[in-house]
Design a protein around this nucleic acid. Structure first.
Lengths: 251, 251
DNA sequence: CGCGATAAGTTGTCTGGACAACCGGATGAC
DNA sequence: GTCATCCGGTTGTCCAGACAACTTATCGCG
């Protein structure tokens, strides 16, 4: 390693940083290719192992991407800082499931076009719908009025929704367990809404009062939306909190 | 590699999975240590390089953690699936900053205890506050009424907030740039709120109508909350959308 | 008994070499 | 002109070995 002074850094780090500098300076532009591993070995007079470690560390921060038989492509000329929010489970997205109980109001079959919310896919498609309330432990007024829509082939899990075991568990979790599917993404939209009519009565609030409306789509494999939930919460009984954290550190 | 049948998987993957099975079964309990690399080499009749690759892949998913001179500790007996939402920048958290313009209404000094929202820290502490409206491009009604609170030492950035260059830029970004600080986390709370009084007039909505209230705290180094923003949005002009994605794959 | 030095055990870095597997381009056959 | 095959170039996996750097235990001395 031809250095003019002793450098405490590992060699692979020196190589990674030198390559990153070249990328930043445009010597190897985004979308283009780095020199081959062999060429980099020559340039820095290090072993291939060391070069691969360097490339790995650049790949880990999203700056390059190697492809078998082709070479290493520059994917970014900067380390993309990310602000990240993460959850151990989808239930955490709901923020109030623990120590709540569900009261089932009605179970029915609906056609997408007849629902009070926009259900994805074919407007004539059937969905199974469970309407209910959720109560915080020890509270007389509900924290949420909910409608849960499931594709009919998953509707059998509604059998468990009312019993003790199913109470604190969200429907998506019942579907995952019984039907062995994995939820790949959840889309959530929060809006303010005026609570009126039967919903106000069920939630025990004045008609015309303000609430938070939360719509969630659960996406399984192949972009299939297998569940949609719609929750309405009285304003003073629920708020939605989240925290995003700066992730990623420079090499 | 003593296998009874040809296995297409790389050896390091076979070793990783076998070790993971042992961990899951409690052979190597959480908090305890794995065998040394040399012992694992012996057990599987593979090179140290292969063992290290296996351990690396387990470390990458949070199952083990190696420490120089000590050994490899089991940190988890399962792969913690995470649902993740990430942003390239905090502006993305706001979801509507592009193609908007800000109208500054008032700049003032306030004491924390006198603000209409809870400001963190000492109740007697001074803050600089900028009140304003935000308009979507081409729309006559505002999408948001906002109050931005800054610690006094960062208040000079309000100078730029009203000009053309500062219009589409959030205040936090001005602070970061001018004062060279890094925002480590943002805490956000969304509630439904009834819009009344002067705010209703400014937002051009009927008093008593519903809106979304979004409170954000910006945290810099050392858990310092350097900025707090409060936005109120008329219900029909704004909704808050997000998507979380399942991260992490089993080895 | 306490402290410092040394030794043993363990992971981290690095070299060199070899073969497998992939990819794209060139060439040949129909 | 199209498709299949081959070849060269490239990354991925794997082995063996060596030394550096860290950590803990042991030993020796005051």
């Amino acid at each position: 390693m031809p250095l003019g002074f002793p450098d405490k850094r590992p060699r692979y780090q020196i190589v990674a940083e030198a390559l990153f500098d070249d990328i930043r300076r445009g010597t190897f532009p985004v979308g283009g290719h780095l020199p081959t591993e062999a060429q980099i070995c020559e340039r820095f007079a290090v072993s291939r192992h060391t070069v691969r470690e360097a490339l790995r560390s650049l790949a880990n921060v999203g700056v390059v991407s190697s492809q078998h038989g082709i070479g290493t492509q520059v994917t970014s000329d900067h380390i993309q800082e990310r602000y990240v929010q993460s959850f151990a489970s989808i239930s955490d997205l709901w923020q109030y499931v623990k120590d709540t109980r569900r009261e089932c109001l009605a179970l029915s079959d609906v056609v997408a076009s007849d629902a009070r919310i926009a259900l994805p896919g074919d407007p004539g498609a059937p969905w199974r719908m469970l309407e209910g309330l959720r109560y915080m432990s020890g509270k007389p007024e509900p924290v949420a009025w909910t409608q849960v829509f499931l594709l009919p082939r998953y509707g059998d899990v509604f059998d468990e929704a009312g019993n003790d075991a199913g109470n604190e568990v969200l429907i998506y979790a019942l579907v995952e367990r019984r039907h062995h599917i994995v939820t790949r993404r959840v889309r959530q939209t929060i809006t303010a809404t005026m609570i009126e009519g039967a919903t106000a009565a069920l939630l025990k609030v004045e008609p015309g009062s303000c609430g938070l409306s939360v719509l969630r789509e659960y996406v399984g494999e192949g972009d299939e939306v297998y569940e949609v939930t719609w929750s309405v919460h009285p304003a003073e009984r629920y708020s939605y909190s989240m925290e995003v954290v700066l992730a990623q550190a420079p090499p």
